[in-house]
Lab assay of single mutants.
Amino acid sequence: NQASVVANQLIPIQTALTLVMMRSEVVTPVGIPAEDIPRLVSMQVNRAVPLGTTLMPDMVKGYA
């Protein structure tokens, strides 16, 4: 099973992502693949992302 990127904390809207905000976890449905974590650093979320939420491509500006 492929690991996805999951929020390690509440990430407020417009926040630039850092490594400490994300973790990898095998979840359903599958979100952004964990191997993309380095690419996500400094990208902004376009909505508030609660703790434990799987990051989906449409939540990160410039990802999809």
Rank of each mutant, 00 (worst) to 15 (best):
Q2E: 13
P12H: 08
A64C: 15
V30S: 14
M21Y: 05
T53E: 10
G62H: 11
T18A: 08
M59Q: 03
A16P: 14
I32S: 00
Q14H: 15
P29I: 05
V5A: 10
P33R: 09
S4H: 01
I13R: 10
P50M: 12
L55Q: 00
L51R: 11
K61L: 13
V41F: 05
T54V: 09
N46R: 10
L10A: 13
I13L: 14
I32P: 00
V6Y: 03
E25K: 09
A3C: 12
E35V: 12
V60M: 05
T18L: 07
V20C: 12
M56Y: 08
T53Q: 12
A48H: 14
R47S: 12
I32K: 01
V27L: 04
A64F: 07
V30K: 08
S24P: 12
P50A: 11
D58G: 09
I32T: 02
G31A: 03
T15W: 05
M21A: 04
D36G: 05
G62S: 08
N1C: 07
Y63V: 04
A16E: 08
L40H: 00
P57R: 06
M22W: 03
Y63W: 13
A16Q: 11
V26A: 09
L19P: 06
T54G: 00
D58S: 11
M21N: 06
P33A: 08
E35W: 09
A34R: 05
M56N: 05
Y63G: 02
V6Q: 03
L51M: 15
T28F: 11
N1H: 12
M59W: 11
V60D: 01
L55N: 00
K61I: 15
P38Y: 12
G52R: 03
A48E: 12
L10K: 13
Q44W: 12
L40K: 00
V30Q: 15
G52N: 12
M59S: 05
L51F: 15
L40Q: 00
Q2K: 08
V26N: 12
I32G: 01
D58P: 05
M22K: 01
A3D: 05
V26D: 10
P12Y: 05
E35R: 07
Y63S: 04
E25Y: 07
D36Q: 12
A34H: 07
D58Q: 11
M21W: 04
T28V: 09
N8C: 09
V45E: 00
T53H: 09
A3N: 07
S42L: 09
